[in-house]
Design a protein around this nucleic acid. Structure first.
Lengths: 200, 200
DNA sequence: TTGATTTCTTATCATACATCAATGCATACG
DNA sequence: CGTATGCATTGATGTATGATAAGAAATCAA
């Protein structure tokens, strides 16, 4: 599978209904950045100043609890946006880390950009609202799974949501996302294989 | 403890910065409703048409999974708003039920109301945005706890978040919110009592 | 290529939580 | 009044998942 990378401008045009002229106005507020695998973009305690749009590569956000364990909150690959919304919006120290799982090229989006884009484009504003609501829907679904579903069910759901992560993220990260140990995930996979399950 | 009930209009004025004149414009879009304990306001599969502001009483939202088990998503008591945002926003069938844990009086808020209020009041719009972001922050925190914390830790956190629920909601509902069985919650409480923990 | 790390698997044992069943205890009800 | 109903507790037992340790396999670096 090739991880289809589309540029941020392309994304703004096709998904958010931004026109060519509007793009010109926005251009100044857009910065691009290339980072290596392992680079840290945000640390717990820092205030998150940007959202990151992934043109290419893979990022993750995660917390580290009192016992020193990582809990992965989210993955973001091509055409996804990742950030700590709460930290940005409330201007508060973040609970998260964000770092690069693969070498990545990304676009830095700050609040100025969002405000400007919302001002000059109604369709961008609607798009942005939609994204917020979608985020909530997604979080709610995850809570629901964590409340009631077994590790296996959650894993199967994960595969549906992030099919390409199976190939791109190490298993221990997937386990962390699911809230189980890598060993447990290994067992779940073994069990599924025995029952002849094929993810692809 | 008396459950302080404030009226919706009072809430709009003090929290959302709505003025007296604006209230007059909004008045037509507001309906009040009194319901008995056990009344169901929303069922899985229905499209959620209103948010509910609690003037008095206690509501809950929950899902029922394939095995017939309830998972409580949220409680809402005085001055809280409860709904299925995704269902309202995307006009999709809801995954949730919403019903009354106590006799309640509530205000029905539909999308017209929100749109109108956002139009005529900047401060309402900001307030609304803030509420959305707060919702996200809250969901994220809950996910984080479900990923990493024990039943006991989650219970202690619950007490901090909803101190009065201990007295108002039956224990099996709290257990459902926490993602454990009532029996397990009973044991957690016993253990805490043994270690001389006093919630109030 | 080779050796060094990192990741994945497997095995064993430990534990938190679930399940099932019985009991107690209120409150509601005929 | 007795009895039904709903909820909380308790005990016995089961099970999924965690912890630890070790080896196999894959990846990376030199």
């Amino acid at each position: 599978m090739t991880n289809v990378s589309i540029s941020f401008t392309e994304y703004l045009q096709t998904k958010a209904g931004i026109t060519d002229e509007q793009l010109l106005q926005l251009n100044d507020a857009i910065q691009s950045k290339t980072i290596e695998k392992g680079s840290v973009l945000l640390r717990q305690g820092e205030i998150c100043s940007h959202s990151f749009f992934l043109e290419k590569g893979l990022l993750r956000s995660y917390t580290i609890d009192a016992a020193g364990k990582e809990h992965i909150i989210q993955f973001a690959s091509e055409s996804w946006i990742i950030s700590d919304r709460s930290s940005i919006f409330f201007n508060e120290p973040s609970d998260f880390y964000i770092d690069a799982v693969e070498d990545s090229t990304l676009i830095l989006i700050d609040q100025n950009f969002i405000n400007l884009a919302c001002e000059i484009s109604v369709s961008f504003r609607l798009f942005n609202d939609r994204a917020l609501q979608n985020h909530i829907r997604h979080l709610q679904k995850r809570i629901n799974l964590l409340l009631g579903a077994s590790a296996e069910e959650r894993y199967l759901d994960f595969i549906k949501l992030y099919p390409d992560m199976l190939l791109r993220a190490p298993q221990w990260m997937i386990a962390s996302y699911l809230g189980i140990t890598p060993e447990s995930l290994s067992r779940v996979r073994k069990e599924l294989a025995k029952r002849n399950f094929k993810p692809y």
